[in-house]
Amino acid sequence: MFYLYYLLILWIVLVAIFVIMSALSIMQMLRFGLSGAGTYFSTLIFVAVGAVIIAGCSFYFATIDWNAALNFGGLIQDSISAPF
């Protein structure tokens, strides 16, 4: 049985990798960038957009029943059988 929370774990792992790579990038930017509005502003926009995406997805995922099992057969059959 394939449970939905397997996908959630995969999503969390991918987002964790994103966060680590982002943290390293931000660290380099703030360490070596010229002190000024451009450096701070670009970093702020990057963090804000990323945070909004992750927060938005998290709020949506809070409404999902993750213990449900995945029905691949029904999912694929509907996609194939119903034409455009």
């Binding site: 999503w11 991918l14 987002v15 994103f18 982002s22 990038s25 957009v49 990323g50 995406i53 997805c57």
Partner: peptide, 9 residues
């Protein structure tokens, strides 16, 4: 969401 985040990065 994953696609968007990595493109953004």
């Amino acid at each position: 969401s994953v696609f968007f985040l990595y493109s953004w990065l």
